[in-house]
Structure formats: C-alpha cells, structure tokens
Design a protein around this nucleic acid. Structure first.
Length: 612
DNA sequence: CTAGGGTTAG
C-alpha cells in the first residue's frame, strides 16, 4: 500500500509537470489529490499526502483538506486542516465558503469529539457551523452530543436537545441513543435521560445499554439490573456491551449468584465473549468473592490486556492473597506486558493488604526506574498505608515528610487508623484535630477522632466530638449490609426493623449473642459512637447491620451453606471478632466484602489474620 | 461521515 501510494504520487507529480501549460485546468490537481485520498487507507501515508498537498498548492482548498482529515482519521491531520479551514488570524482570507457544508463540519466535529480533552473544541466548531448558516444533519448530532457528554454540561446538552427536536432528528435512533448517553453523563441529567428513554418510540439494544450503563456508572446498580430484566421482558436481545454494563452493576452489588447467572446467560445466548466482556467477568468474580473462578477465566483467555492482568491482581489483593498477586505481576512483566500506573496501584495495594513491606518498597522504586512511571498521589498513598498497617507509624510519617507531593486527607486518615490500631493515641488525636480543621465537613474525620477517645476511655471528649457533628448538621453515614438470597437482594441497616420478619431476625441475633459468648466471645464496646451505658452499647453492637444480615442468612439457608455479605463501610472490630465466633459455633463459612477488602471467616478464623 | 462498554490507594 505504502509503495503503491508513493508510486502514484510520483507519477502524478511527473504527469502534472509534463502537461503543457494550456491543458492544465484549474481543477486537475484538486481532482487528482481527491482521488489519491480516496484510495489511501493507511495512516503511514499521511505525511506523503501532506507533502503532495503542499506541492500542489492545495493547502487552503476546503474539499481537499476535509478529505485529507477524514481519510486519514488522524488527529494531527484534522488539526492541521482546521487551521486553514478556520483561520484564527483575521487577515487570512477564508477559503471559498461554498465548500462549507455539513459534511465538512461533521468531519471536523467528529475528530475533536473523539479526542480526549478536545470536547470544547468540537462544540466550538458546532457553533461555528451554525454561525456560517450551515444546517446540521442527522450525522452531526451524535458527535455534538458526545462532546456535551464529555464536558458534562447539562445546560448545553438541553440546548442541543432543543435543536435536535427543532430539526426533527429526535426519531433517529443514533441521535436518540446518544442523547440518553449524554444526559447520563451530565450532573443531574439522569431524569432527562430516563425521559428520553421512556418516550422513545423505538429502541434497540444500544438504547437499553446506554440507560443501563448510565445507571451502572451512577452507582444505581439495583436499577441497572432491574432495567436489564425489563429489557428481557421487552424482548430486546442484549449484546456483549449490554452485558458489560450489567456485570459492572452486579460487581458493585457483590451479587455472586446474579453474576454466575449472567455468565451462564452469556453462554446460553451465545453472546460474543469480547475481551471487554471477559475482563468484566473476571472483575465480577473477583469482587463478588470468587477469585479462584476469576483466575480460571483469566488463564483461559487467549488475549489479555493490562486491564485483564490488573483486574485479577486487584482481586487477589482484595482477598489478602498478596504473594500470589505479586507473583502474577512478575509473570506479567516477564511476559512482556508493560505495567501502567493502575497496575502499580494493584500490586502496591496487594503488598499493603498482606504486609509485604520490602516488596512494596521494591515495586514502588521500580515504577520510575524500570518503567518511567512517575508515582502519583495514589501510589504514595499505598506506601503510607503499607507502612501504617505494618505498624510502622513513624516510618509512615517520615515517608509523608519526604514525599514530593502534598499529602491528601486519605493519606492522613490511613495514618490515624494506624495510630488507633497501634495505640499511638496522642499522635492520632493531634492529626485528627488538624484534619477536622482542614476538612470540617468530612464525616469520617470525626469518627476517627471519636474512636480514639473511646480507646482512651475519654467519654466526655467523645461526646464533644458527637456534639460538633450535630452542630454542623452532620450525620454518621449509616452502615448497611446487603445479602443476596434466592435471587433477591436484601439490605439491612443498624437497628433496622423494616423487614417483615424482623422479630425472628432479632431473636436470632439474641441467640447468636448467647451462643458465641458461651464460646468465649467478649464484646468490644469501645467502637460504639453513641454515648450510652455499657449494656446499651452491647445492645447497639448486636444491631449492627452485618449481624442482622448474618442472622437472616442463618434463618434462611440450609446448615453448612456459605454466607456471603457485602458491607458499605469497613467492618468494625467487634463485628469482626463476633463473626469469627459465629463461623465456628454455627459451622459456616462467612465471606464478608468490606469497603476495602474481603474477609473469609472459617472455623473461628479470618483470612485477613486480623490484619486489616 | 452517525449511537452504548472494561482495571484505579482508604
């Protein structure tokens, strides 16, 4: 292709040169160039064609420039072309406006809409289009709406929506689907997205995917799954992209049964297992508690990208299987896959969750040295967390002091947590106070300080913290636990009495409490935020959402069935201890997904080794 | 010349 093109260009130039002057019609070079552009498809020919354009003096011919930009579909080409098409310099004469049609503008808008960080430029050219009096066509709007989505500007999106209606393109599926997508990306636009979705006279798998994907990204996972069910009722066949969105919602819910069902659905319906779909499946299994299954799928993949490797490394890390995660990372590098910054977050967090201090240092240092990746705040955060969890609070502080980046609140919170765990209470108290000063509306800063006072048995100070929160009108984020049983998700919050079987559940909690106490469980009351007397504190602990969910599972499942629950916050010390006893007394495997990681409780022990 | 998707410290 490349050699053919060179040949064609040489021939063209030679022919043009040897034509007698009187036979050279003005349009000959233009036509020749257009024909050449028509037949060239490779990007490598870009520079050659560019040279030709310059040689023939066609650098300000709109037709040629547009064709040049669109054929090469290269960002540099469109950038180059738009310089001449829309000169910013007032003195440069505009090329003949006759050539400025919708196609030309679409080409320019598309190029910018598809490029990261150029969405506003795309919209700038859309405005230019309107200013030139060129009427957009149905191909224009998907590009424009995508650009609106990129900058997440709801007002602009609505304005464009108005134009779409005025020009009568709202019935075009492509336009309508991008509209759903655009609204889902704009803050507060989800209601409008749903309106377009509900009112659409026609819809296909792409319409459904846009809406399901939108809900999934907004964290409205249950609604995403619900919509997927409606899609099946509506008789629309989901494709692999729909499945990726549903799977990501399922991953968020931690619904393993649903995930398994989705996998079998993919098989049954013979949905193409694209690379992205395989990655989504791996991520789902890992984050829903079955890393071994994730690993199996990963090993069976014929092509893997850095995302596949990272998903499974993260999965192992979350389950506290740090050594396996680390060796998989090494295997990846040996196989010639270059890690990116995200992969490093994975391997560093694996070291952190498993206490692999030396390895953590090794990978952190190798980032820049071997791969030229400058550590970001997240990587520094991983290191601080690694040192903190390992009990090396002073080293963690020293690391923060030497960091080339300003530490953020997340980093300080890791250190405070470590101070709490290691009994460095005075230090924890002073850092907490500073943190509250700098970030007074962040609820967890108060919880950390309050926990420290509880450990110091300074109840009066603890009450003060509580009062500070009340004064600022802040409320503690309620802990909630989800559990999937018989294809349903149940959610419990502390002290919840909304469940219709709540009486039986509370009786079960009582029974659990008695049985584990007999087995040697001693309640840890210092973590209760409320300032109440000891007996009530113990009672409040009983009503923690995970205990309700576990009681419910014990009531509803056959003996010996593993119990899987998902918590929205980190599991508290008392629940962690109680769950160990429950796993032993009731002879159940209990798998808990925390805000941070997994805990596998079995026979009185937890896979985290009480290190979390 | 047109649409929807995947991994990210605590």
């Amino acid at each position: 292709m490349k050699t053919n093109l060179s040949g064609a260009i040489t021939t063209t130039l030679t022919t043009l040169k040897h034509l007698p002057p009187h036979t050279t019609k003005p349009r000959v070079p233009e036509q020749t160039c257009l024909t050449l552009l028509q037949s060239s498809t490779t990007l490598s020919s870009l520079t050659q064609i560019h040279a030709l354009i310059l040689k023939l003096g066609l650098h300000n011919n709109p037709l040629v420039l547009t064709k040049f930009a669109s054929t090469s579909s290269n960002f540099n080409a469109i950038h180059y072309a738009s310089q001449f098409l829309f000169p910013s310099d007032q003195n440069t004469p505009l090329p003949n406006p006759i050539y400025y049609d919708a196609f030309l503008f679409n080409t320019v808008i598309r190029a910018y809409a598809q490029t990261v960080d150029s969405k506003s430029t795309a919209l700038h050219f859309y405005k230019t289009m309107l200013r030139y009096g060129v009427v957009p066509n149905k191909f224009t709007y998907p590009f424009v709406l995508k650009a609106c989505a990129g900058i997440a500007d709801l007002n602009l999106g609505q304005l464009v929506h108005g134009f779409v209606v005025k020009l009568g393109f709202e019935d075009c599926l492509h336009v309508q689907n991008t509209m759903v997508h655009m609204y889902c990306y704009c803050e507060g636009g989800d209601g409008y997205a749903r309106k377009v979705f509900d009112e659409s006279p026609k819809s296909d798998s792409i319409t459904w995917s846009a809406m399901i994907g939108g809900y999934a990204r907004l964290g409205r996972s249950a609604e995403a799954v619900g919509l997927f069910r409606e899609m099946q009722v509506a008789g629309v066949r989901p494709d692999e992209i729909t499945m990726v969105s549903v799977l990501s919602a399922c991953t968020d819910l931690g619904a393993l049964e649903l995930g398994k069902w989705l996998e079998s659905y993919v098989e049954r319906k013979e949905i193409t297992k694209s690379l992205e779909l395989c990655n989504a499946l791996i991520d789902m299994f890992a984050k829903c508690g079955d890393v071994d299954k994730a690993m199996k799928l990963f090993r069976r993949m014929s092509t893997r990208t850095i995302v596949s490797w990272t998903s499974v490394i993260d999965g192992l890390a979350m389950h506290g299987r740090g050594l396996e995660a680390v060796s998989l990372f090494d295997e990846m590098v040996e196989r010639g896959v270059t890690p990116d910054d995200v992969a490093f977050i994975g391997v560093l967090s694996a070291c952190s969750h498993s206490g692999l201090v030396d390895k953590g240092h090794y990978y952190f240092n190798s980032m820049q040295k071997s791969f030229g990746i400058v550590p970001k705040i997240e990587h520094h955060g991983c290191m601080v967390d690694l040192l903190s969890r390992a009990g090396l609070v002073r080293e963690a502080l020293e690391f923060v002091r030497k960091m080339p980046i300003e530490p953020n609140q997340i980093i300080w919170r890791s250190i405070i947590t470590a101070c709490h765990a290691r009994g460095e209470l005075k230090l924890g108290e002073s850092i907490s106070k500073e943190l509250i000063k700098s970030e007074p509306m962040h609820e967890s800063n108060y919880v950390l300080l309050s926990n420290i006072y509880a450990k110091l048995l300074r109840w009066e100070k603890k009450t003060k913290v509580r009062e500070m929160m009340d004064m600022k009108g802040m409320k503690k984020i309620p802990g909630s636990t989800m559990i999937e049983l018989n294809n349903e998700m149940y959610e419990f919050v502390a002290g919840d009495k909304s469940h219709n079987q709540y009486k039986e559940i509370y009786e079960m909690v009582e029974e659990m409490g008695k049985k584990i106490k007999r087995a040697g469980y001693v309640p840890t009351t210092s973590q209760v935020l409320l300032d109440i007397d000891e007996e009530d504190k113990e009672d409040a602990l009983h009503k923690h959402s995970e205990k309700l969910a576990i009681a419910f599972a014990l009531l509803k499942t056959k003996p010996g069935t593993p119990i899987r629950i998902v918590k929205n916050l980190r599991v508290c010390e008392d629940c962690h201890c109680a769950t160990k006893f429950i796993s032993k007394v009731y002879d159940r495997e209990i798998v808990v997904r925390d805000r941070n990681r997994f805990h596998h409780f079995k026979n009185g022990l937890c896979s985290c080794g009480d290190f979390w």
